[in-house]
Design a protein around this nucleic acid. Structure first.
Lengths: 338, 338
DNA sequence: CATCATTCTGATAACGTTGTCAGGCGTGTC
DNA sequence: GACACGCCTGACAACGTTATCAGAATGATG
């Protein structure tokens, strides 16, 4: 590996001049710059990041802390988004998994601070509210898919309320009047927001939301999530008057609703329309008929987080302390006009 | 941030002694060591990785290069495995995504080499054979889910042949004699291996494998994968004598087979047994009935890769240049005795 | 041609660590 | 008491870069 000295010697200039050229300092005569650049290319010189960072305290590295994001297929796009944005900015990404527990998280952040990352993206698997964050000096930080209750840290989350509102409105506009909700566990914040979007859409369109039209599709039972979507769907179907459409809290729930609908010998979308949430293509496209679903903009959330971090790193402020990312409705074949 | 000098001054020793204590050099008197350690804890000193790596050329960082692993839910466990193993070894993981193209890959590896990672894990989304690898000096490297045709680089891949053999044998042992294969595109290496395992299991159990019992569940069509599993299944079902079991190349294919079976008004597993591959729990557990499937040991592959890398980094050799990881059969409810 | 401002360049000192090597200090031996 | 030996410690250089600041080269002006 050639060093800056080798380049300087070969080019017949001082190391400082080489440093200037490499760092695009304009105070170098054009002829000198070109000459040095040629030698740099010739020798294949690249500055040593360790030495550079020791002097300048800039490492060109961002940290990504996740609770379990890598262990679930859902939100893995966050990683891709962060990764791609880093690459475009000539930066790298150091990733740490915390398994959601406090000790791991503190250790992870400490390690990243020691390694002098220039900023941290903190991403969670489920949308959740954070009570407190480990100390980390004045390092810029952006939260993805989570937020501080007091709004003290910039945060990027999907607009579950609006997404659910749009999905429900879509079904209403198709002519449906009797619509059921198969909700995510409302303990989960996303579940609560999606539920709210559903209800609001109903109200805004002059429909009423009766309690018997809302059932949980999954619940927590001794620490584990269990799906009860199939049973819940059967109860919808067996009711005196059965709904003509079901809005589902997730695609996984929707998949189970499909099973139940078929068990009763009914057809989708002829007898009943179904909408999902998450746009988990692996499921949505494999279902028969393909599932209309609301997409989570995870990739863009990751990208945006990096761009925010870079802005913060330059000392610039942010227009919005927290951003609600729109969740587009992806129309497939599981809904039809009534 | 306190430096080694601060510790030395406060402890009344030289910086070298502090360095020795921090690096667990045994040539320090116990009383000195304890004293220095106390001061280190007091000041909260941690060595600067940049300075350390500049001197010693060791960074404590491993690189993970993936083609699209982060963009697919399947193999994301590789990341988790690598990550956890790194954390346990006190190392960190620098991750780069190449989108599968050559230029990105070269750039990624070059960047990692410049950053002085101590080894590289190169992981791909689909099992594939690599023709050549970008130059990277003498940096240790381990391939995951891919391999060099000439075996020149240590590699860890799932044993698709044995996995498929086991799945097929399972069905045979359940009494099935007329078994069909809904294969992954055989252009994909995993498809070829799984197909081979299927056929071998049949032969080993004294059954014959007729061409009309093998159909592709997915094909490449102008650059994109398209699923034809549903149609293929219908043709199996509509044959003069219909098979009593179907071995599927992937869970995604199996899910479409479910759809087709239901379309014909048949029941799983009563009328027909089905096995999947990938053990993609999100699908396998959501199907009705839950799908028996072969698991891919991605997490362990990631872990093993790191342990190999560390061994290589210490100059130790490897027992096996390439490792076939067993794929355990996960039994659920989609198969039953005939 | 002298002067001065302007533009460009280089010597040298950091940054925080580890490696080299010399040396201090006990202890045991003759 | 002199000496050798082993154990422990410290002064200083080195790693490859950037920052400081002085100074050289250039060009403009009187």
């Amino acid at each position: 590996m050639p060093t800056i000295k080798d380049v300087a010697r070969r080019a017949g200039v001082s190391i400082k001049t080489v440093s200037r050229v490499v760092n695009k300092d304009p105070a170098v005569r054009d002829s000198t710059r070109e000459h040095v650049e040629r030698v740099v290319a010739e020798l294949g010189y690249t500055p040593d990041p360790a030495a550079r960072s020791m002097r300048s305290n800039r490492t060109g590295v961002l940290g990504l802390v996740t609770d379990m994001v890598t262990t679930t297929p859902y939100s893995v796009d966050i990683i891709s988004g962060v990764q791609d944005a880093c690459a475009e900015a000539g930066m790298m990404m150091l990733i740490v998994n915390t398994r959601g527990d406090r000790a791991h998280t503190e250790h992870a952040i400490r390690t990243l601070v020691e390694r002098k990352v220039e900023g941290i993206v903190y991403a969670t698997m489920y949308l959740r509210a954070l009570d407190e964050l480990p100390a980390m000096g004045d390092l810029p930080m952006v939260l993805v898919n989570c937020f501080m209750a007091d709004g003290s840290v910039p945060s990027i989350v999907p607009d579950d309320y609006a997404g659910s509102y749009a999905a429900t409105s879509h079904v209403i506009e198709l002519g449906h009047r009797d619509i059921a909700l198969l909700s995510v566990n409302p303990v989960i914040i996303a579940g609560e927001r999606r539920g709210r979007g559903f209800r609001r859409a109903l109200l805004d369109h002059g429909l009423t939301c009766t309690p018997d039209r809302v059932r949980a599709g999954q619940v927590f039972e001794n620490g584990r999530e269990v799906f009860v979507a199939a049973e819940a769907t059967l109860r919808f179907l067996d009711a005196a008057q059965r709904p003509t459409a079901i809005v589902c809290g997730t695609d996984a729930i929707a998949m189970r609703a499909y099973n139940a609908v078929r068990e009763r010998g009914l057809r989708i979308p002829d007898d009943i329309s179904i909408v999902g949430y998450d746009n988990f293509v692996m499921i949505a496209e494999a279902l028969d008929p393909p599932l209309t679903s609301v997409a989570l903009p995870y990739y863009d959330m990751g990208r945006t987080a990096v761009s925010w971090l870079r802005r913060l790193g330059h000392g610039d402020g942010l227009a919005e302390p927290t951003l609600l990312m729109p969740c587009p409705l992806i129309r497939r074949a599981s809904c039809r006009p009534l």
